[in-house]
């Protein structure tokens, strides 16, 4: 068994797996890694199940110390990670020796880093998942929804199933322009024609109010012309528009039901990309058909096939 001890944490780094399912009718949210693509790659590098439990590290502010030798993989954002004093690039498997310190300080590219461990980090699932949801007090290392705290001990297997190399063409450039794909649907036909034109032809800016529950975009005010809605279930990635006309993309920790009109939902790959955007990021939206979205998604999943 290998072990990491949390030396320093701002409380935002948290354990995440693929999310919590089959309990949304109880008002329990989905959770799970926001950038599920980076999470999948991190697990793939070590031969873990793709949705095995990883640490999601937003922005930095985390120091871990190895209490035994082990194998880890780092993907996602470049948070200026260092292994002892040596810079550690993301998108690779690396060995950590007992006594070595792993620190994440500040974002240089992207927002969320993912640290996977041989066999996945071990924690008891709550309602079927380890996914940490702070707002609900569910999941995480002790099941109570808390982020990682100094003194926490994280255990994982001593040996990885495999140790792979990242295909270089699959490493994303988080500094590239951001275009997100929207499956148009829900109440989109009840927005003004001008609003739908603006939606796809103007730049949007990611607001400060951007977290695991929802990411608010600012730009031209969109106008909904339909009747008030009765609250209904909200799918992952739904783009809802409250009365101020500024869309909110609903992420993994969204409320289970809601009553604001929606324009449709972003594709899973677009949500992963959005998870790596910092406030102030310029974003464009592009419509995509159901058939194309499905084909793209299947092609993406095929990359991790054995």
């Amino acid at each position: 068994m290998s072990m990491l001890r949390v030396e320093h944490s701002l409380g935002f780094a948290q354990l995440q797996d693929g999310g919590r399912f089959g309990v949304r009718h109880l008002g329990v949210t989905q959770g799970g890694a926001l950038d599920w693509i980076a999470q999948h790659w991190a697990n793939w590098l070590l031969g873990n199940p793709l949705d095995a439990c990883v640490i999601e590290i937003p922005l930095g502010g985390l120091t871990l110390k190895a209490e035994a030798d082990g194998w880890l993989a780092l993907t996602g954002a470049d948070l200026d990670a260092k292994l002892d004093q040596q810079p550690l690039r993301p998108w690779q498997v690396f060995a950590i020796r007992s006594g070595q310190q792993l620190t994440f300080t500040q974002p240089r590219s992207g927002v969320r880093a993912y640290l996977a461990a041989a066999g996945g980090f071990k924690a008891n699932p709550v309602l079927g998942a380890v996914a940490t949801v702070m707002r609900e007090g569910l999941g995480g290392l002790h099941g109570d929804g808390k982020g990682l705290k100094p003194g926490n001990q994280l255990t994982y297997s001593a040996q990885p199933a495999v140790s792979r190399k990242m295909p270089s063409e699959a490493i994303p450039d988080y500094k590239s322009p951001v275009t997100l794909q929207l499956l148009v649907g829900a109440q989109s036909s009840q927005f003004s024609g001008d609003s739908l034109f603006q939606l796809f032809n103007q730049h949007w800016t990611l607001d400060q109010r951007a977290d695991r529950m929802g990411m608010r975009l600012t730009g031209p005010a969109l106008r909904y012309q339909g009747d008030a809605l009765i609250s209904e279930g909200i799918p992952l990635g739904a783009v809802q528009v409250p009365p101020d006309g500024q869309p909110i993309v609903l992420m993994n920790d969204r409320q289970t039901i809601g009553g604001y009109p929606r324009l449709g939902a972003l594709t899973p790959a677009s949500l992963a990309r959005l998870a790596q955007c910092a406030p102030g990021q310029k974003i464009r939206l592009q419509p995509i058909s159901q058939a194309q979205a499905r084909q793209d998604h299947l092609a993406l999943l095929a990359r991790w096939e054995p």
């Binding site: 009718h25 609250s231 799918p235």
Partner: peptide
């Protein structure tokens, strides 16, 4: 995967990899 009832609706979340629309 999930079935979310509300006042007037049921949101059905099924495994889209195993079933077409």
């Amino acid at each position: 995967i999930d079935l979310v009832p509300s006042y007037t609706t049921l949101m059905l979340h099924y495994d889209g990899l195993q079933l077409s629309e």
